[in-house]
Amino acid sequence: MRRRTKTLLLILLASVIAVLFIAPLFWMFSTSFKSDFEAIAGGLNWLPKEFTFENYAYTLLGQGLNVPVLRWMFNSLFAGITGSLLIVFIDAMAAYALARLDVPFKKILLPLFISTLMIPWVITFLPLYMQFSNAGLLDTYAVLIFPYTANAFGVFLLYQFFKGFPKELEEAAHLDGANKWQIFMKVVVPSARPIMWTLGIFSFMTIYNDFLWPLVATSSPEMRTITTGIAIMQQGSFVSSYGKLMALTSIATVPIIIIFLIGQKQLIKGITQTGIK
């Protein structure tokens, strides 16, 4: 077979597979602009016969719907942004100190942190629930943010970066009389920005997309996240209102796909750097 024919056939194959990957998302967006009636009637119309915004109006503007979809969206974004900022900041401090500073017991601490990466999270989720319950903090933003901050992934990722970070810059700042905190803030953090973005995007996606934990740890309609809220709607009043359901899933999906497309390079870097070294 000639080389060019072979390449063309491979491109064709890749394109067919690409269609399979995009089709479900396209069908979701398309359905979200159909009336429930047109959706449930079936058919193969990839574009709505009658284009309508009623599903978005109904779910977002609260027309006849007494669940706070915009609040769910806010909760997800707020928890995702606050949580990932917190994670990036405390992980960077810990990783930098373990890689460079005279932290007591650091020979024990680092392996201790990293070894917990092997622990399946199923083991901590019930006791975490009880801890928050005992503290009276279930169904608050605390449950949507803090449990994610204990993960050692970020410390591990940033530690690898700081280990390979050239010492000269820090030493120069030290000679200029800067203390550790000033060196960290003015020299280390600016150079570590790309890897911190990687961790930030990872953490945001984890928090925004999480399902089981926010499902059990929140209970009031106001404290649901978008991913748990739509699941509850699917099992409740929207059970066969696919037009409205697809409007909700579209609303949940658009921000995360935008963030994914912007942060894709960082994300891939993070995945490959923590792969196997």
């Binding site: 990957f21 995009i22 479900p24 998302l25 996606m205 925004y208 997309n209 999480d210 399902f211 991913t227 748990t228 739509i230 699941a231 949940a252 999906t253 995360i256 796909i257 963030i259 994914f260």
Partner: peptide, 8 residues
């Protein structure tokens, strides 16, 4: 792309 979306 689908990897970026929530399981629900």
């Amino acid at each position: 792309i689908p990897y970026s979306i929530s399981v629900s």
